[in-house]
Design a binder for these strands. Structure first.
Lengths: 107, 107
DNA sequence: AAACCATATAACCATATTGTTATTTGTATA
DNA sequence: TATACAAATAACAATATGGTTATATGGTTT
């Protein structure tokens, strides 16, 4: 995965409200109207947060009548840990730097 | 770890430049002046990025003469994967919601 | 069809983020 | 001591983020 894409997923996780939503969804699927009274923010704010999580594929949505239930995508969460330990390798960049004589050695 | 604190660590990771710096540091320790020619941004910009990584304890710094070398803190990176799979449990919040009759059941 | 409820979107505002250039601080060296 | 280089900090600008209220959309119910 590219640095940009990995950063986008981390951006989706870089907010306490969204992390809390993910934790709640781990206990059970929830709809927006259940999440609203748990947080001290408006319904549109919650709606935008879950939408951000959906774009990052961290949650999925299922409409049930007038409600939209959100569920956690555990596979995606596992992918993140993997991405962190397998960031694109940049050894080549450092080799180029060395060829240009831009490396610093001090001993 | 609190949601706020976890979010702060993810914020530090939520930028492609910082992720790239971490990847470079995985190959070997680098000083700021080595990082600058690799990226298309100014020295102060790089300096601020490594500073952000340092605040999040994702890197450590060691001064060697006029250079400051940065090294990756792999332990901290491992902590992140752990934090993600062990987010604070909110079952209690959902129980309260149920007591207030605010849960939605549709079947 | 009309009213109702849940959710999404629009328009907007305050603050945070990420870059810039100019300057300061710390260390080494002529 | 004066000069030079590395890195950090200050002041600032453009854009992104996260909240608000008002409104639109989708589906249910009377």
């Amino acid at each position: 995965m590219e640095f940009e894409k990995i950063a986008d997923i981390f951006k989706a996780l870089a907010d306490p409200t969204r992390l809390k939503i993910l934790s709640l969804l781990r206990t059970r699927d929830c709809c927006v109207c259940e999440l609203v009274p748990i947080f001290k923010i408006s319904q549109p704010a919650i709606s935008k947060h879950v939408s951000r999580l959906k774009t990052a594929e961290l949650v999925r949505e299922t409409r049930k009548g007038q409600w939209v239930f959100y569920s956690i995508n555990e596979k995606r969460l596992e992918e993140i840990g993997y991405a962190l330990s397998h960031l694109p390798d940049l050894t080549e960049e450092l080799r180029k730097l060395e060829q240009q004589g831009l490396t610093v050695t001090c001993e």
